[in-house]
Write a protein that binds this DNA or RNA. Sequence first.
DNA 1: CACCTGTGTTAATGATCACTAACATCGGCC
DNA 2: GGCCGATGTTAGTGATCATTAACACAGGTG
Lengths: 198, 198
Amino acid sequence: MARNVTDHRRFGTRRTEILRAAATLFASRGFHGVSIEELGRAVGTSGPALYRHFPGKESLLAAMLLDVSERLAIGGRERVAVATGPREALDSLLRGHIAFALEEPALITVHDRELGNVPEPERHRIRRLQRGYLEEWVRVLAELRPDRGPDLLRATVHATFGLLNSTPHSAGELPEGRMVALLLDMGSAALLTDGRAP
Amino acid sequence: MARNVTDHRRFGTRRTEILRAAATLFASRGFHGVSIEELGRAVGTSGPALYRHFPGKESLLAAMLLDVSERLAIGGRERVAVATGPREALDSLLRGHIAFALEEPALITVHDRELGNVPEPERHRIRRLQRGYLEEWVRVLAELRPDRGPDLLRATVHATFGLLNSTPHSAGELPEGRMVALLLDMGSAALLTDGRAP
DNA sequence: CACCTGTGTTAATGATCACTAACATCGGCC
DNA sequence: GGCCGATGTTAGTGATCATTAACACAGGTG
């Protein structure tokens, strides 16, 4: 039978709770460094209960990365669609990514460390989503830096992601508002530098 | 008896060979994702042979991270000592870090992911070395940006490390020379931006 | 009330892992 | 030539792990 809305919601809540707990554990000790038993304990059950929600440990990771990648990709597309010009679009992409990285540091960390542990059908989908998100940035940046070729643009965006995603590792160094401002400044500067040293 | 130079060299070579192989394996699958047997196979022996060189898996990781941290810290100190001014010092720090990240992507990756798996006496030493390296950058940057407080400077340098260390993940996108130039540009821009949007 | 579905439990099970034991080989040195 | 230290080997060993089996129980629905 088809599951009704209430069931979907309840199911989703539990699932989400597990994914959230798993994210922080995976982020701090790595996928292979966390046991099913530990994951269960983190949500108040014992290990094997998780198999009611995911067919296996790898599927849990896959679901997590798929969700992150989708949120980033969809968010990016929406922000660009709404913006009135490339400079505004880039600024919005930056703000969105920074907000995400500060709100969900564990997810960001797992997202760019554990792709290799996702089994193959899903890995490909995640890669596609990540690539789509990157290309969204590249398209915007291409309008602002028409002198640069696509490979250079991709590398530029990649490095900027590295900058923005480093937040989890320096968490707590600065109050959130100042961290947002700093990352925005540094990200813009890194993306838009024309190569002439100041 | 004291080991003579030849023995030291041979010993060092084998040890180094193991550490190098371990670095690439740890970088791609994580500390817990690689078995002793695999580590051995990667250097042409079988698993337990490694216990002739390291007392355990964790000690192997500790030796690896200690070595990286030392090389970075010592290299940084030397570069700053030799430079004639802060701008030159910063440029030299950037070039040194970029060269390291491009030459040893696996080491850089393991270096900022696996500290948590190092047992306690060594973990503390590694942290101290990492901190020393960071402070070297902070001291230099403080001279160029006297308006900024130490917390802001630390966060700035941290984010820059994130930018520079992202290279392993975007390897092969650009020929090495252009990658160096790009990272140098982006790093300088990120470190020195004055916050006024261009 | 009977049943089904969602969710949990504890107790295997077989694989894998880090590490140890016992033994082999080989090169240099007295 | 015999010893010894460095470096291997294979065969355990006990722990831990992911996963499965068998069962329990609650809530809603027929």
